[in-house]
Write a protein that binds this DNA or RNA. Structure first.
Lengths: 269, 269
DNA sequence: CAAATAGTGTCTCTAAGACAATATCAC
DNA sequence: GTGATATTGTCTTAGAGACACTATTTG
């Protein structure tokens, strides 16, 4: 038995107190709003998934999907597993937005959480019928910042959650948020959602994940709508097409039956 | 005793297996190389701090500074504390670059680590005389990527560590690295250093942290040298000055005795 | 004065934004 | 034909990069 082997045998990590580690995932998706005009294309809204908590703490409040990190898996595995458990869909992309580790962030004890942004494509979304009778809903997102005060509003039918956050600039040009009013959103999840939206919008600026919201083949107008919806901006079609040109390639298919001129379908390059 | 209170009393996290959580910090600093020409300004090199491991595992290998997360502190607190313990200096900035959670990344067991980039200013750097007799050194950094193969070389005097990594594009435009040859660097630290360099260079592109390498007052040429050194590029002074103009403000002080025309000192705006 | 850095002016080229004009389909 | 989107062209403007030139100090 060599020196290192001997050491590892006798080594014990149990002397140190350890936190529980979880993931929280901000799952984004575009919700299509049907148009009443047969000519007009349908508009879409950015929405995210929240789950109504069945037990304490924050009983009956809305919270992000997530769960405990299991031995043998990476934190990314854990995040993917949790999204699949909730939606029975594999997210197209996953981005870590940091470890939330305030000691008092969870009343149950020392629980730190790595938060992720993930994007679900335009396919049919179904909720798994879990035995835990969890209620899950998609909430339309609105997030407006004015003079470093931000208001996050999440709407799903009659339910409306409205949180207020203070923006804080930190080094390396990162912005973090402090909760002024959680708006009834569980734990520090309002803060996580705010950071997720910032990350999502930054990524959307250089087309990093806008493809993930769409099927494999799409029109340039659909792609433009994704960017506009996610970033809450408006751009001119001619300019969008010039900028996106290098990121896509043509197919030889066209849309049809849309009530107006057909559009060529493109694919991500 | 209300419902929620009752629940919290009886709640136990001990049923779940928990990982140990640590931080690893890539501490960067500019090392000034004195010029032999009295006229010429001194050049600088990007360097980072490594510590020689005194015990198993990876005994006598070089590793990043870091340590265990303590109860009651955030992961950022922990990172700052560890940097101060090693260098007795407060870093100017701190940026999280992700949680490294491969189950087999540490032979001692289930230990996950949140990595950080931090920058130390140009002040005198001293190593604390610890009773643990740890050996710490600044290593000059070279990091070249060619066709998604990267070579990381760290030099400190006679010591030369050379690691090979494979670049992997993931969603959201993030790049991660897989270690092909650790070059004798402990644990997965070569991977962490590669990611840190990527983050540092990205930040340097829009001047996010280049000020942190310098004292409060500096010349524009010094600032330009920081960006060039960190990003391993070369830019024309006239163009740099135009781009940086909005980020700095003049003082009424000048350099003197430099062997050539004095330069106005600026301050971050 | 020679060598080095400090600092300014300007030309070109590219990319972004604004806007105008034309094309094509469903009804 | 009408009303919607699809698609292309071009003008203007802002910014990056390249380069030339002048200024100022120390030894």
């Amino acid at each position: 038995m060599n020196d290192e082997h001997q050491f590892l045998e006798s080594y014990s990590l149990s002397d140190y107190e350890r936190p529980s580690v979880t993931t929280d995932i901000v799952v984004f998706r575009l919700r299509t709003e049907e148009s009443d005009n047969y000519r007009q294309d349908s508009k879409s809204k950015l929405s995210l998934l929240l789950i109504r908590r069945g037990g304490h703490p924050f009983k009956d409040c809305w919270a992000l999907p997530g769960g405990f990190l299991n031995p043998g898996e990476t934190i990314e595995d854990c995040a993917l597993r949790e999204v699949e458990e909730e939606t029975s869909l594999k997210p197209a992309s996953l981005l870590s937005i940091g470890l939330f580790s305030e000691p008092d962030r969870d009343p149950r004890g020392w629980i730190i959480s790595n938060a992720f942004v993930s994007v679900l494509g335009a396919e049919k979304v179904s909720f798994k019928a879990g035995d835990d009778a969890k209620e899950a809903k998609w909430f339309d997102v609105s997030f407006e910042t004015e003079n470093s005060d931000s208001v996050l509003t999440l709407c799903s039918g009659e339910i409306k959650l409205s949180a207020v956050l203070n923006e804080e600039k930190s080094s390396f040009g990162m912005t973090s948020y402090k909760i002024a009013d959680s708006g009834g959103i569980a734990f520090d999840h309002a803060k996580i959602i705010a950071k997720a939206l910032t990350a999502l919008r930054t990524a959307a600026r250089d087309f990093e994940m806008i493809f993930d919201f769409l099927p494999e083949k799409f029109t340039l107008t659909e792609l433009q709508n994704v960017q506009e919806t996610v970033m809450n901006i408006s751009v001119l079609p001619a300019n969008f097409r010039r900028k996106i040109a290098g990121y896509v390639e043509e197919t030889d298919e066209y849309t049809q039956g849309a009530g107006h001129r057909p559009a060529k379908l493109y694919r991500r390059k």
